[in-house]
Design a binder for these strands. Structure first.
Lengths: 222, 222
DNA sequence: ATTACTAGCGCACGAGTAA
DNA sequence: TTTACTCGTGCGCTAGTAA
């Protein structure tokens, strides 16, 4: 029991725009609380400028103040911010160079065109390679691999076969990137390859050995 | 302080999809509570199946359970339901006939075409006339009149001048209608005129003298 | 460093009841 | 009928401290 429960009850009854005739026992009944308890809460909420009250014939006329409305809005907002993190996984690692085959792949037009199409940016012809130094982080990567992700199909060029890629929207130190995982070659399990738009490469001033944070979005649609 | 605050905190840190390393004192600091208090709450929330916990090296690894997520969703939903009532005014009255000039207006094509255009239905060539029997209800009507509403312009036909109408989306016993207030003739302050789509006239089996509930939407856009 | 127990205090609760 | 007071109980809080 708290003032939020009462604000929600009053709001659902339409106490925003006009005074609502209510009694403490009716609210109590609806919320499973005693009449006395509601009486005390309304008194308190009046002091806190969450509601106005005027005596009516039977019971009070109660209305939610702008402050009361703001309180509800703020809570809703906070919950939304929290729920927005659903389906996102954070990973920490360390920037390394010269590992992984992503940088080779990204020079191939067939791959980079697909990135452009599905992620909306032209990838820099190299990748950020992130080394996962902790077993915990590798377990996170496993969780990502178990997700569906965004598939970029493979192709053949002459004799050579280029495998499919499983990709994810992600942010690297806050900047939008794409996580690229070749579907076949599962060697180097402790490396994550991230392609960035060209401009980001300049903006993020990170060097080899730097610790970086990545947030991977498991959802397919942005 | 309650479990919602902690769920929001954990959620914002991304504890939905993967275990989050936290300590009771860190949460306490963030929420302005003592370490001991957070310890007790986490214990309780674990019992209530809102979170899982596993001992880590320093502190716990905490994750929000599906049930915990559902709890947040439900609260968000309830708040949204409450906030959806904002800008809506409830009025009670009694159905009467033969009063008001709305029914005359609605037979005029220039008016009814506008209703069709702005409310999306062809009005029945008569109005529901609602008599406000209580001073409280009349005060509600004043609040409505003070709002902007949806204007339907006047026109002249030969010598006669037909005034503008101020209209509002509303529901009459749950059915979508339009409240129509002539801008000039402010006689009969205790009558509200409501036009309904033709089919509603049959569906709502209300007769003269019946008490009815109206919910008026002060917003212009549906 | 952690978590979480115990003790002590105060706020929140329902029951009874006055106005 | 109302609201809201007082009273007694118990839950939630912080501080101290054990593990």
């Amino acid at each position: 029991m708290n003032e939020i429960d009462i604000l929600i009850y009053l709001g659902k009854q339409g106490a925003f725009s006009s005074p609502l005739p209510v009694t403490t026992s009716r609210i109590g009944k609806a919320l499973g609380e005693s009449q006395q308890n509601i009486s005390r809460w309304l008194l308190k909420m009046e002091k806190e400028d969450l509601i106005y009250r005027n005596m009516g014939i039977k019971g009070y006329l109660v209305q939610i103040t702008p402050n009361g409305e703001k309180t509800l809005q703020k809570l809703k907002n906070d919950i939304e911010l929290a729920l927005a993190k659903k389906g996102k996984i954070k990973i920490r690692g360390e920037l390394v160079t010269g590992m992984g085959d992503g940088q080779y792949y990204m020079r191939l037009k067939k791959y980079s065109d697909q990135i452009k199409k599905k992620f909306g940016f032209k990838p820099y012809a190299g990748t950020f390679n992130i080394k996962l130094t902790d077993m915990k982080e590798i377990r996170q990567k496993e969780k990502i691999i178990a997700s569906k992700g965004i598939e970029i199909p493979g192709f053949r060029e002459g004799n050579r076969v280029f495998g499919a890629l499983k990709c994810f929207h992600c942010t690297l130190e806050g900047g939008k990137c794409a996580l690229v995982i070749p579907e076949r070659s599962h060697h180097s399990f402790d490396i994550m390859e991230i392609v960035a738009p060209e401009f980001l490469r300049d903006k993020l001033k990170i060097k080899d050995g730097n610790a970086v944070k990545i947030e991977v979005d498991l959802n397919e649609n942005l």
